[in-house]
Nucleic acid binder design. Structure first.
Lengths: 194, 194
DNA sequence: GATTTTATATGATGTTTATCATATAAAAAT
DNA sequence: ATTTTTATATGATAAACATCATATAAAATC
């Protein structure tokens, strides 16, 4: 079947989107090529017309995860600055919405565990994408570069750690972790005690 | 072969220890029953004399992970109190040793991602073990109960998040994350700005 | 020393997996 | 309208996996 020029590109994006969902929800191993292709509305064999291997798919999903999160945030909050921007960032990151959106949220709490076990090349790519994002957030922190960097690193650890833990806990504790981490992360970023 | 009364118990513990290592290093899926039994010096078939299923093994490894971490810490630092205890806790948690000991350290940064995808029963067990540990740490925080609870939750998120991220980054960034998180976590716990 | 008991080993089964060679069908080009 | 091109489908292959039935061998008991 020969479709319009960008039809293959569209299919590729459907595969990527299904993979992004399933990887976060089930993990790299349990999300099989077959089930990803099924969710994309195709059969398993066609996969290799789009990607060389499952590993290549994984690499692309990681890259896409950071891009999506950045784009979504930049487009919705480019009118905010400094402290307002930072507060909004933390609140959104630890919001109910993001907490429940394990299947499409930030790749760090959902995938970092598995990426930590990947080869050096994948880890390096992940590091570069993170640093890009780190520099962006640093811009909004009112402090000298090296101070700002330390504060953002501390806050990001806290935020992604809280989300990861909240998703493993049930009920009350999940909410408490998010709220406690949000309070401290904001305090750290704006440089005032909680 | 009929060995001494507790020989089976010893073998069971060797299986648990091999599983604890491999689960952290490779993840639940990639660590097969076969490879775990091989590391324990046995063949795969004998596994089912010790555990009903791989899931039961996973549940036992999670339980053991918390126990080990607690025991190790309590036995080595029961002479410390309050701020000293807390500082030592944070420093050890984010130390080079623990950073490199992915295969035998705290189960949270290594396994939380996968446990988040487990069934409600496993997640509930994990929650209970965590709460136990939480109450222990709270005792050393010099603040009213609810304040102490919030501070420890914030600090634990930060510490486990930092360790998880450090293990996915390469080199410099890994060190920076740990050091920034340690500084802020201590500040939070002792109630003084960094 | 013969018998019983039981911890571990062997080997088989059925399922799932990633990957690939080949087939099909429809759009595009002629 | 025929031919060419190519996106997807089918079906096969080989490996890995969890689980289980059965076998073996050695310690304990008599």
């Amino acid at each position: 079947m020969r479709y319009t020029t960008d039809h293959k590109q569209q299919t590729r994006e459907q595969i990527l989107s299904a993979a992004a969902r399933q990887f976060r929800e089930r993990g790299f191993d349990q999300a099989s090529v077959g089930s990803i292709m099924k969710e994309a509305g195709l059969t398993h064999g066609g996969f290799y017309a789009h990607f060389e291997s499952k590993d290549e798919l994984i690499a692309n999903v990681i890259r896409g995860g950071f891009d999506q999160v950045s784009e979504r945030f930049e487009s919705q909050f480019n009118h905010l600055h400094g402290e307002d921007w930072l507060r909004t960032w933390v609140d959104r990151y630890l919001s109910d919405g993001h907490y429940h959106a394990m299947d499409r949220g930030c790749p760090m709490p959902a995938l970092a565990g598995e990426i930590g076990r990947a080869d050096a090349q994948s880890r390096h790519a992940f590091t570069e994408l993170f640093e890009q994002r780190l520099r962006r957030v640093m811009k909004e922190v009112d402090a000298p570069q090296d101070q700002a960097r330390r504060r953002v690193l501390a806050a990001v650890s806290q935020m992604s750690g809280a989300l990861m833990l909240a998703r493993t806990f049930d009920n009350q504790l999940a909410d408490d972790v998010r709220s406690a981490a949000a309070e401290q992360a904001i305090a750290t970023l704006v440089g005032r005690p909680a």
